[in-house]
Structures are given as C-alpha cells and as structure tokens.
Design a protein around this nucleic acid. Structure first.
Lengths: 269, 269
DNA sequence: TGAGTAAAGGTCAGTTTGACTTTAAGTCAT
DNA sequence: ATGACTTAAAGTCAAACTGACCTTTACTCA
C-alpha cells in the first residue's frame, strides 16, 4: 500500500472535531441505606451514533470561550447546575472512540453541592445515576467515568476537595460520610476528627447542629484554599488551572512514532 | 452590540485548530557544577507568530494516529528522541493564547534516558536549554513548562518515575542525584537508601560499578511497574493512559456560563 | 430522672521519618 | 605494603504519625 506524500498530508491532517464533556458528581442519599452516595447526571443521545444510549453532557467549544467556560456552559445548559468545583480531567482522543468521525473530547469533572443536587430536575432525556451502577454508556464514556472516579478518590485522599460536595457548613460526621462514600470504606470517627482538626482549609464555627438525639455536633466551614501551587492562570473565568500532584506509572514501551525526515518547524501554532 | 442567533452560532462554533506539543525532559551535566540538571529541547519558530522565538516541539494531529502517537512522532521528528516515558500533561485552550487564530494544544510530557540525551544533536533551529533558565518562549509555553516541571516534581515525590531519566542500570547515588536535581534540594543518602530499598519497582543486581576511588556501589535496575491503577487504555501504542493522583485546589468561582435554554442533546460527538 | 446516642477528646502501641553514627570496601600517594 | 581518603552501606535513636480503642460530655426521649 502506498500513498503519495501529498495525498497523505491532505488526508491525514484534516482537523478532527473537538468536543467538551463533563463528569458531574453529587451526593444523594442511597435509596436503600439512606447513606450518601455518588450520583451523576447523564443525557440521552437523540442522534446517531449511540442513539438512545446515555452519555456525558457535552457540546461544542465556542470560539470566544475558554475550555473551562465551555464546560461550565454545557453543564448549566443540560442540568442547570453550577458546580462548586470544576477542573480539567483528561483529553480523550483514541482514533476509534467515535465511529466514522474522528472526535477529540476534552473532559472536565465537577462537584456540586448537595442542596443543588437535590434541586436538579430530571427530564425524559436527563437523568441521575449512581456512579457505581452505570450501564453501558455511549462512546468511551464508561472509561471516562471510571477515570474521573479514580481521580476523585485520589483528590479526596489528598485532602481538600470533599467540602465541595457538601453545603457551606457541615459537621465532621457529614464530612466523614462523604469520605466514606467516595473511598467506599469506613473510617474511624475519632481518627478522622484528629486528621481534620489541623487541616489548613477547614475551620470550626461557633454554631452547632441542633435536632439530633445526642450531643449537638459543631459546624465547620470551608476556608479558602491556601493558594494554588500549580501555575494559576487567569482566574477571571473561574478557571482553576491545571492542578495537583499525581502518582506515577510508566509506559514501558514508547509510542509507535513513524520515522520521518527531521523537521524543525512547528507550524500548527 | 447584537448578533442574530444564527450569526452567533455560525461564528462561534467553527472549530479551533488543534496542535500536539511535548515538553521533553532529560538530564545533562551542569556546565558549572557538573552535577546533573534538567534540560529540555526547544525549536525555533520559523514563521509568524512569534517568529524567531523558541517554542516547544509540536505539530498537527494526524487523522489515523492516537494523541500519544502524535506526540511521539513529533518528538522524534524534531529531536530524534524516543522517550522512556510519555504522558499527557494538560490541554491548553485559552482564547488568546495564539494571536488571531484560536488554537487548542494538547500537551504531552516526556522523559528520555541520559545516554539518549547526550546523543541528541543540536541544529540551528533545535537547541537544548536548562529547564530553570529559559528566556521568553512563544505563546504560553513558559506557563506550560512551569506546569510540566511541577508535575514532574510531584511524580518524583510519589515514587516511580525518576528511573526514566537514567540508563538501564544505575547506582543509588545516581538516582539520588536525579531526585536532587528535580526537587532542587539535598537528600540524606542513608535515608534515601532506606526508602528505595523496599520500593517495589526497583531491584538490586549482582553488579557493581567499578572505577571510583571508593567502595564500588551496587547497580540497581528498574523493575516493571506493578500495574496501572489508572484505567489502562490500549497499551499497544505505548499509551500509559491517564495516570496519577493529584492534590486538590478549588476554583472559588464557577465559570461564566452564559445562561441559555435547556438543551438535552450533546451533538458534537 | 435515667437510658440511649453520638460528639469530642484522650491513651497507647506500632510504624514511619529525619538526623546522625559506625563499619565496609575500594583507590591513591607515599 | 601501609595508611589516608572517599563514598557505600548499615545501624541507632528520638520525634512524629497512625490505627485501634477507651472515656467523658452533652444532648433527646421515654
């Protein structure tokens, strides 16, 4: 098989289309246990491909909006939610992830407050699902959700993210339930308290939550983050910038990398 | 100022162009101290915009190649390097990052072995620079390099990445020098040894490095990673998949998100 | 008023971490 | 050959941290 050089260039470098999608997490009480669990909203595909299947909310990138703004806009258009936390997750671009057309998806992930999640309405084509009980989704969206869940768990273990799933004030027991829901394991209440006592981004208020049949727990508040260690880009759009450490996993093999003559210019931008 | 709805749609949703760039790190001995330091190759812009300035190697995404394959190809075309480690860094898409044209860049970062870095030739338009002494680069590439450095440091602190900057066999002292170069601080040799002794992805060999004027140090070897905790996608292309934990930093504000009527369809993909 | 419940704080042992010391095993100059 | 010198490699010790568990506090309800 052989293509002339001109043919290859013409064929090969027509730009793929670009989409922005978002994985939105919120807490909702489990139907069975009543304990909070992770849920996320999906939209039903009304066109081919994958017509009828559920998919992540998403849409095109407008010319005059940043990536994070596009994610926020799509998110609000589909679910009316305004997230407390919104961050880029990953860029998915496998050649065959969408049949026929080459699509590159820049995926964001978001956390919304519990009260907002309760308000969020469902329609025929927008529904909430338990994050751990999804069926087959359109495209590679199962894989994307799995990766978002993994990222969420890592961020939660690292500290200062779980607050964004709760309201403005919360008890340590509520916060512990968030950790337990996300990490899917029970935590010792006393040790959890000790860990959170000297966390820099949380502070006790003078208020207590009344109404339980026990000693009233103190309410805590999320204190503004201690400053971004990642290169903060302009926060005018609420962009949090690339953020956060990562564990380390290597590819043993290097990429396939077609051999071609040396060329120094990078012309695409 | 007012646009008709049709106009806005037409104007706003023409797709931005897409580029793949890579931040490539390698160790080279410092000119002054001789100790290893981080270097990276840049290419000179031969066109507008930013003509004459140095920039990250990059290029277009071919239709039939994955994102990581495109990164590997561009990398090899410009520097002839084949990285030991290649992973997606972030997707940069600020509206004004390239004058006139809207460009979204999917950026990868790579580590190459020391011996390869030594071989890598320089031309008039490809040169290596110390990572901590860069001048003004084209586009937002200074910001991108800063973020890549931050990511590298985090991965190194987490464990199993530094090996990819060394050869196949290495002494613990060499490995410590890598850590010191990346983290920019001295480490206690004895404690470093203890930490690395029970690291799962490193193992001692029976060989020793001769030739020093002191006790010959044992050579160690990088043992295959213990398996990807991140959703491994097809590794046929050497793609390592999205990887790694992250610390957590919140956007206090949510995005701007223009309010528009509810729409359930996600038509872009 | 006492029983029940979860909050809040403390104890204790095992583990990890950083600073430091000691011993081992080579090379080099005399 | 011997001792000075250098770094490798292993060990010591105290402080910090962690997980398991216990005690006290402060409320509600019967």
């Amino acid at each position: 098989m052989y293509f002339s050089s001109a043919n290859v260039t013409e064929r090969e470098f027509v730009p793929p289309s670009l989409a922005i999608s978002t994985v939105i997490f919120a807490l909702r009480p489990s139907a069975t246990s009543g304990r909070p669990t992770l849920w996320l909203p999906l939209v039903r595909r009304i066109r081919q491909p994958y017509r009828g299947l559920w998919a992540l909310p998403g849409g095109p990138l407008a010319r005059s909006e940043s990536l994070v703004a596009a994610a926020a806009r799509n998110l609000k258009e589909t679910t009316r939610l305004e997230p407390q936390y919104l961050e880029q997750l990953y860029c998915f671009g496998a050649v065959d992830r969408s049949p026929a057309e080459r699509v590159v998806s820049i995926v964001y992930w978001a956390l919304v407050h519990a009260d907002q999640a309760a308000i969020a309405q469902e329609t025929d084509n927008v529904r909430w699902f338990r994050a751990d009980r999804l069926g087959e989704l359109a495209f590679d969206h199962n894989e994307i959700v799995d990766y978002a869940l993994w990222r969420l768990r890592n961020k939660v273990e690292y500290g200062s993210i779980a607050y964004h799933l709760l309201g403005e004030r919360f008890t340590l027991a509520q916060l512990r339930e968030v950790y337990e829901a996300v990490l899917d394991k029970r935590l010792d209440p006393a040790n959890f308290r000790r860990r959170l006592r000297d966390a820099p981004d949380i502070e006790p208020t003078d208020e207590y939550l009344q109404g339980g049949r026990h000693r009233p727990p103190r309410l805590y508040r999320y204190k503004a983050a201690t400053g971004p260690p990642a290169p903060g880009r302009g926060l005018s759009t609420g962009e949090s910038g690339p953020a956060a450490p990562e564990q380390s996993f290597a590819s043993t093999e290097s990429g396939p990398a077609a051999v071609e003559p040396l060329q120094t210019a990078n012309d695409t931008e």
